[in-house]
């Protein structure tokens, strides 16, 4: 699984992708391993144009090479109160599991970085598994504010970094679209969207007291069949809007499974 994810990251970073505005771009490395020859698209580095192939084909051809530099893996984990929800276990546990799986991708020369509510955790001089271990278990005294963490990541992470963000993204709105697009353009971004299990299935009847996971405030609701339908429709629409926001910004996006965080990560990369 680890190798498959790493290979997917390497492949993904060297493949041109259509971003929100429809302008193709590629993440290129300075490696020598030839990957493919393809037609030039606007934005390609002119130094990569294969003039011999261009002469043969009659149109500009670009040489795509695999990057042979080490990966930089970055992770942002939402540890706010809203991640404590869950029916069998808290979503936060699945999120930790996914983050641990993410940093396990790190090979010997790869660097790991974690963005927390306290700031950046980048173990100096450490690479590979040691760096991954520190980042996966980095404590955060301040709950992570996801939009702020994304802004920090956008400012400090080097181009081409593979970024995983695990959150319910309740505070990521359309106002953050530009930030998501900027990240999606510069980095190889993956989002695991945690959805409250009550939104998938709401078997509640009559008066039920609910507690807000963020604020701790309790409120009483009356769940009629009509109220349940309305709630589930609104939840579906919100989840779809969140997914669409990330896809449009050029991110990989998948729902976080309450039962198995690692499986959600695999699904995000199209692995079974």
């Amino acid at each position: 699984m680890r190798e498959a994810l790493r290979a997917a990251l390497l492949r993904g970073r060297n493949r041109p992708r259509n971003l929100g505005a429809g302008s193709p771009t590629i993440f290129r490395g300075d490696g020598l391993e030839f990957a493919e020859l393809r037609e030039y698209v606007a934005g390609d580095d002119p130094r990569r144009i294969d003039w011999a192939a261009t002469a043969r084909a009659g149109a500009l051809q670009t040489r795509v090479v695999l990057e042979d530099v080490a990966l930089t893996l970055a992770g942002i984990l939402d540890d706010s109160g809203s991640m404590r929800v869950g029916r069998k276990r808290p979503l936060g546990e699945a999120a930790h599991q996914a983050l641990a799986g993410w940093f396990q991708i790190a090979a010997s020369d790869d660097r790991c970085v974690r963005v927390t509510g306290d700031g950046l955790v980048a173990p100096p001089g450490m690479r590979g598994e040691r760096s991954a271990l520190v980042c996966a278990n980095a404590p955060s005294r301040t709950p992570t504010n996801v939009p702020e963490a994304l802004a920090l990541a956008s400012a400090v992470l080097p181009r081409g970094t593979a970024l995983l963000v695990i959150s319910d993204f309740l505070d990521c709105t359309d106002a953050h679209r530009a930030l998501l697009t900027a990240l999606g353009t510069r980095l190889d971004c993956t989002a695991l969207v945690a959805q409250d299990p009550w939104e998938a299935d709401l078997p509640l009847r009559g008066f039920v007291t609910m507690r807000d996971a963020e604020t701790g405030r309790t409120e009483r609701f009356f769940f009629s069949p009509r109220a349940r339908r309305r709630f589930q429709r609104a939840a579906r629409e919100r989840a779809a809007a969140t997914m669409h926001r990330f896809h449009a910004a050029g991110w990989r996006c998948e729902g976080l499974d309450e039962a198995d965080g690692a499986r959600a990560l695999s699904r995000a990369f199209g692995l079974r």
């Binding site: 809203s82 007291t209 609910m210 507690r211 807000d212 963020e214 769940f223 709630f231 609104a234």
Partner: peptide, 21 residues
């Protein structure tokens, strides 16, 4: 007692808006 038995939900404001109560 009711508050102690309350179900945890991530975003009550959203629930209230969705249900319309």
């Amino acid at each position: 007692r009711e508050a102690a038995e309350a179900l945890l939900y991530s975003d009550l404001a959203f629930m209230r808006g969705a249900i319309g109560s």
